[in-house]
Design a protein around this nucleic acid. Structure first.
Lengths: 353, 353
DNA sequence: CTACAAGGTTGTCGCGCTCCAATCAATAGA
DNA sequence: TCTATTGATTGGAGCGCGACAACCTTGTAG
């Protein structure tokens, strides 16, 4: 099944190989007759330009290398989808590998991707050291999504997680909650920012923060909620590190006989498809995942095409999506009283799950 | 940032370009000294073999083209993950594009993938005409997952959806249900098989089938459940086309004041992460998605390496995962009585949503 | 009739690499 | 000493294509 080459098409159309090349690249300097003849010959032979040979010869690639941390996470799957859309529109193809949240593997994957001389590299939620990313950036433009890093050669797209956390706290406090806990994202990307935003917002509202160590998983939510109930049962609202975590927390709360939102309000983060399910209907912070993927590609292409040589750090504002897992506490007055009490006796509490 | 080539390494190591090539390909016919010298020069220059040039020259590819129908669907994201794992282990990279469930787009994507002369093509849930796949198969080995097609050049990996449907019905009938409906998957992949299995199992159990037209989405589940409640309120159990559909159905049932499983048992299909959530805890049929992805790659590589020249049609057996959305009907006796009644008055019912 | 331009078309080189025949060195056998 | 034999190394052709200068047309102005 030897595939047809330009030479074959040229022979069949009775022209030179160079002319076929011009036709395939839509050069305007070709007469209509020749063009038609070439196209005819090409379709007859089932000719298809050889992308790799083309890129080798022209020295510019139409491939974007994509490192995605984990496709099991809906959040990243959506990012990839956005990246794919934008890339497809611009005529780029994706060379994709998963990093499994392991730095060593990510390093290897980046190496493999670079061996294809891609036009650029898109890193979705990388955990690898900045040093490695910087090294890659010397071979090919790099953009990191959901990973803020301060290197001058690496563009980034993130959401303003600190602002998101503030929105969550403001929403809950606005409903009358005083005992608002946070199940955090541990060492995960953006987790530190969400913690910081939570702390700041709580302080500004004159409330005592309570951070429970957790992680970006359902199990993390289950364990976090369990720890919370045993150590601070007076809590009336919890801001979870992401949607998955929130769903786990809700399950655990319900197992303990608590009703959401009557007994406990819950806020997630990401607004994944999960949160939108009517059966879940989670109040959460929306990150425009699809849009983030698109923007990453656009920024990368700007860099590739030389339209920009300064670093880009795009930070998107999350928005609050109110659904059915948040409500005023059973008695706002009671909750307020307990909060004052709690703040007086323990201005700062930390629990580990 | 001109990247180093073999020539550069050769010069630096004081050997010929051909020797560098041998070293890079781990040829045993190289003396240890030269090998060391080449490696040293390579690392000093930050040399990395150019994958595309290599594939052009060697005429064999280390790239697998992947067409995935839709990454928003967790099911396919998991498949891709399995494919990625297996490919990575075998030293292959994935060139991935999404088809958006649109035949025209899929056709275009296949064309793009083929232009890279991939070692093989993995089609995950394609909706494109078999004719197009067959044409692709003449350029490169093709395997389709979750899409049975009878073409002699196209390998397939599917689950035995007919058997899965039978398991679902058997489970529900075993619990004492008599009025068991099916929200189907419309024109989706495997939907016809699930319908057939449902019909057969119902007939064997002496029960009257009730198929509600639906689709593989949450909204489909919502609408399907609504149609079901208005047209056949005596139903006590429903077998949904997939998990997403089931979750939509559950939400709608709850909105109507019905409790799951007390008033209505629900079975899904796929056993996605969604079903495993404690808050959902859906009884469903497990498809080993990750494993299916792996197997697809393995079968494809067999073909690529010439270890097999006959068509492979792997059909995996789904297994029932019982969770908390199924139980015996409130009164098995009553349900049975109603079933007999219903079967007598309307041996075959169909409803459209 | 020549000069010139502009539109078309072609030959050739090289992208970075693999592959293979050819070469060379060193040792073993006659 | 003169081949074989083996092992290590090299030059060169070619993978399919793009870039570019050179080359042919025609047509038009001088």
């Amino acid at each position: 099944m030897g595939r047809a080459t330009m030479q074959d098409v040229a022979l069949r159309a009775g022209v030179s190989r160079a002319l076929v090349s011009l036709v395939m690249r839509n050069s305007p300097r070709v007469s209509p007759q020749r063009r038609a003849a070439v196209f005819a010959a090409a379709t007859e032979l089932g000719y298809r330009p050889h992308a790799m040979a083309r890129q080798l010869a022209s020295r510019d690639s139409t491939v974007l290398g994509v490192l995605v941390s984990d496709l099991h996470n809906q959040f990243f799957a959506d990012l990839v989808d956005g990246v794919d859309q934008a890339a497809h529109e611009q005529g780029f193809s994706l060379l994709l590998q998963t990093g499994q949240r392991r730095a060593a593997r990510e390093e290897q994957v980046i190496d493999t991707l670079l061996s294809f001389s891609p036009a650029g590299l898109v890193l979705l939620g990388p955990v690898v050291a900045t040093r490695i990313m910087a090294a890659a950036a010397r071979q090919s433009p790099v953009i990191a999504v959901t990973r803020s890093c301060r290197h001058p050669d690496i563009d980034t797209v993130t959401d303003d997680s600190e602002a998101g956390a503030r929105l969550a706290v403001a929403h809950l406090a606005g409903l009358g909650h005083r005992r608002i806990a946070h199940l955090d994202g541990g060492n995960g990307a953006q987790a530190a920012l969400r913690r910081r935003g939570y702390r700041a917002a709580m302080a500004e509202a004159g409330l005592a923060p309570l951070i429970v160590r957790s992680e970006y998983t359902e199990t993390g939510g289950v364990l976090g909620a369990r720890a919370l109930l045993s150590s601070a049962p007076e809590t009336t609202a919890v801001f979870c590190s992401n949607d998955l975590n929130a769903v786990g927390a809700i399950a655990e709360l319900e197992d303990h006989g608590l009703q959401v939102p009557a007994d406990m309000s819950v806020v997630g983060y990401d607004n994944t498809a999960l949160a939108a399910l009517r059966h879940v209907s989670l109040t959460t912070l929306h990150q425009p995942r699809h849009e983030m993927g698109r923007l990453a590609v656009e920024l990368l292409l700007d860099r590739i095409r030389g339209n920009r040589d300064t670093v880009a750090r795009l930070q998107l504002e999350p928005t609050l999506v109110v659904r059915k897992t948040t409500a005023a506490p059973r008695s706002a007055a009671t909750a307020a009283a307990r909060a004052v009490d709690g703040a007086a006796t323990s201005p700062k509490r930390e629990v580990s799950a």
